[in-house]
Design a protein around this nucleic acid. Structure first.
Lengths: 242, 242
DNA sequence: CCAGATTTGCACTCTATGGTGCACTTTAAC
DNA sequence: GTTAAAGTGCACCATAGAGTGCAAATCTGG
């Protein structure tokens, strides 16, 4: 027990002054909203919590471990979040925000792409697949799957921060392209859903539930195949057979 | 503590003699291989373990709860499986076998379907989607996502029992159909992957990670849309536009 | 340099649970 | 019926981890 204490203390200090692990790095970049006290340990805690929760699962993750990872005293965590459940919810919400922002940014790049439609779709598709296969995205997805039966309200937290808005944004872009005569789509929402499915559908098994990092070449080839099939179904001019 | 004991005992007895919950029902149907002792509590334990693990997650699930659910003494569990981890692995393996068998059966129905290709694909697709959306399938998927970082070897256990063999079987069928001139497919494996993606890709958000049961009508419409898109891309005769 | 807020270290409580030991009962097979 | 295997009930151990209290240290704004 005493030995554990000592080790925790050492890690804590190393993180605080060394700032090597990433949690503290992120915290430095986030000292904006309502920063009272020090350089807002809040963000560091959220980052650390997500990391540890994702690695160990909610039940296995100990608040002590999160504190150590964040370079913070356990008490500070309870000061900020009250209890472990709240911490989980906030950590997931923060991470979902980050992930969705990335996805939306990717989709938005369809807005003023005026070259070949295939090139545009492949570019955006590739970016979307990259986001989907990002380590943190997989961690978030795993964590959601893991805890959804224990915390059904996570769905509400994710609601509006997850795939849904991204698909809608994509549907918007596809509708515009269709209106401009570049695609032939009757139901943009459905088309967006299907494009998303084609892009990400095979990632689960390919990446072995996110435990294997996929080479970029593989992402490219999946993207190309997905866009190819998509254009066969929704392209404006009937494509000559491959 | 005493009160908990009492309650557990009551549930246990109710299960043993009433056989109402499903675990015991299943066990009765499985007293085949190597049944020594009683009517093989083994299967009842596996079923109960899967149920409880899926509901609570590995760490939260208590062996006592599993014993109660199975209508069995805690000791019996340890007699059969040694420890909690082994129990998890075996429960998952058993459930994966079950799920894969269902999926393969669905795919096999493509073998001697000689009518309209669209009808055949929609029929099989619908069955596949149903399997995918089955409560137990979702539970298995959630459990895998949840525990994969704690037990990476679950991948090996699932290997050969999961989506992979199903996709391969589907690729086989598609290849035959292509050879018979009913489809125009250059890469059957890729086509199978894409058909699978189109069928199941939108289920995650639609069913809210499997926490919402989808009306069969919705499954049908998704299936129809998936097959439609698939045939646009891989149909033998270029379809007239919708 | 001061005051108030924040953070920290550490000890401590309380509860939960995996796993075991043991004596006793039930079951299946001969 | 007898017997050995399988199952049961219960007490028990050891450990671990959430959450709290408190006094001392540290920071931040003025």
């Amino acid at each position: 027990m005493v030995r554990i204490r000592a080790r925790t203390g050492a890690v804590t200090r190393a993180l605080r002054y060394g700032g090597a692990v990433g949690a503290t790095t992120a915290s430095a970049a986030a000292g904006g909203a309502g920063s009272r006290g020090r350089i807002d340990k809040r963000q560091a805690i959220l980052d650390a919590a997500f990391t540890v929760f994702a690695r160990e699962g909610y039940a296995q993750a100990t608040v002590d471990a999160i504190a150590a990872e964040a370079g913070v005293a356990k008490h500070t965590i309870y000061n900020h979040f009250g209890d472990k459940q709240t911490l989980l919810r906030q950590a997931i919400a923060a991470e979902a925000d980050r992930a969705m922002a990335e996805n939306l940014a990717a989709v938005e790049r369809l807005r003023d792409h005026d070259g070949d439609i295939r090139v545009a779709l492949e570019s955006v598709g590739h970016r979307l697949v990259q986001c989907y296969c990002d380590d943190r995205s997989w961690a978030l997805r795993r964590l959601l799957y893991a805890e959804i039966s224990q915390f059904p309200d996570l769905l509400d937290i994710i609601q509006g921060r997850a795939a849904n808005p991204v698909t809608e944004a994509l549907a918007d872009r596809l509708a515009r392209l269709s209106l401009a005569g570049r695609l032939r789509i009757s139901d943009p929402a459905e088309a967006a859903e299907q494009l998303g499915a084609l892009l990400t559908g095979s990632m689960e098994s390919r990446s072995r539930l996110g435990t294997r990092r996929l080479p970029d070449a593989e992402l490219h080839s999946v993207t190309r195949a997905a866009v190819d099939t998509f254009l066969h179904a929704f392209g404006a001019e009937p494509p000559e057979n491959t």
